[in-house]
Nucleic acid binder design. Structure first.
Lengths: 227, 227
DNA sequence: GTCTATAAATAGATAGAC
DNA sequence: GTCTATCTATTTATAGAC
């Protein structure tokens, strides 16, 4: 097998093992065996086990595997379609988590281990998300569409629903699920809850005088399956 | 040092180490050194390293360290004070996570490692929470206070906000925080968002005809610091 | 209860032949 | 590019003296 090809094969095999057993829980012998080569081959492509692990985190967690959220919902942002913005983000994130369960596992492992690349992920990708989504929320507050609440709290609430749901699916709910729904329905319901939770005058505490311009279009709500 | 005392001391020291480095990442030598004894002492009290780890998870994660949520908000439940129910739960959980950061770390480590006790935690404690809180939400739906939405989704949304926030505080936000607020304020805001998100007729999509009996009392909302 | 010494297995990593 | 053989340090765990 050619150099680059083998290098990538080892990377992929190691990703699977590291994502399940963590750094210390995975041995270079296991990686070699799973890749069908000798340990010497592993160390030929990656000088140390640490190098291999860092290469994996760089590729999977910090690398280009994640779509830019700005692009994902660019149209919705332009049109100020609040539902499409939040539901689009939720769907994008959750389908990524579902298609690549190693991502969340590796990220969580590395965060627990306090690996440098985990910190980097938070300083860049996560902070970006708060800036981006928080900026949109602020804009909609100025429009009078959302009530005056700390934007970072709103972002955290929404990401909390999404990421916690994905973590549940990845780590525990695999078989006998407490909550057995499609990602699409989860995205829709989370969006319902969040938008009604932050909309201006949307509560039951005040008698609304004017509806101003709220763009929530209720769909997929209640217990009815979407479509 | 007496037997039981030393046994507990080793347990405590090991909890700290395991919670940070995980099972495979912690050596019995480190544990012994941190406890100020020889390795032989560790193995005198716990036959194997695995036994020690299991004892820790049993004590910390499955043991009586967690207050029963039913008791915590029993009064609020009786009075159907929705805000007090949700805010009380949020405060109880988050203060536990803050006072005992080892709890979330150990739980997450053991879930990633697919330890048997992690599964047990989900089958009992977590399922209990869904039953309990879900039951209350269903009751309030019958009262006409909340809209007709799958109760498990509501529970997941709310626990998502809380646990994700605590995980952020525990794993990353330790110093330079993206979101730097007190637990009390977070609990209040999460409750605001959730209650307004699930209240009957609480959205902007329909013109409300009657307010029925919604018990949301807005406090700590907006950008004003609470008290 | 506590230690030192040590066994036995496994870990990461290298040398050198093909 | 690939392997076998091997080195060295570490890891879990035990023996036996005090």
């Amino acid at each position: 097998m050619a150099g680059e090809e083998r290098r990538l094969q080892i990377l992929r095999v190691a990703m699977r093992l590291f994502s399940h057993r963590g750094f210390r829980g995975t041995t270079t012998k296991e990686i070699a065996k799973a890749a069908g080569v000798s340990e010497a081959m592993v160390f030929r492509h990656y000088a140390t086990k640490e190098d291999l692990y860092t290469a994996i985190l760089d590729y999977k967690v910090c690398g280009g595997g994640l779509k830019d959220p700005r692009e994902l919902v660019a149209d919705a942002i332009r049109q100020k379609d609040d539902r499409a913005v939040f539901e689009g983000l939720a769907n994008g994130m959750m389908s990524h988590h579902q298609n690549d369960t190693e991502f969340l596992r590796l990220l969580t492992h590395s965060a627990l281990e306090e690996h440098q690349l985990a910190d980097m992920f938070w300083e860049t990708t996560v902070r970006d998300m708060y800036d981006f989504l928080g900026g949109y929320i602020r804009e909609r507050q100025h429009d009078g569409a959302f009530r005056d609440i700390d934007t970072a709290i709103v972002v955290r609430s929404f990401l909390g629903m999404i990421i916690h749901h994905s973590l549940n699916n990845t780590l525990w709910d695999k078989t006998r699920r407490i909550l057995n729904i499609t990602n699409e329905r989860a995205a829709s319901e989370f969006t319902n809850i969040l938008l009604h939770g932050i909309i201006a005058d949307g509560g039951a505490t005040r008698t609304p005088k004017s509806r101003r311009r709220s763009t929530i279009a209720r769909n997929g709500s209640g217990k009815t399956k979407k479509k």
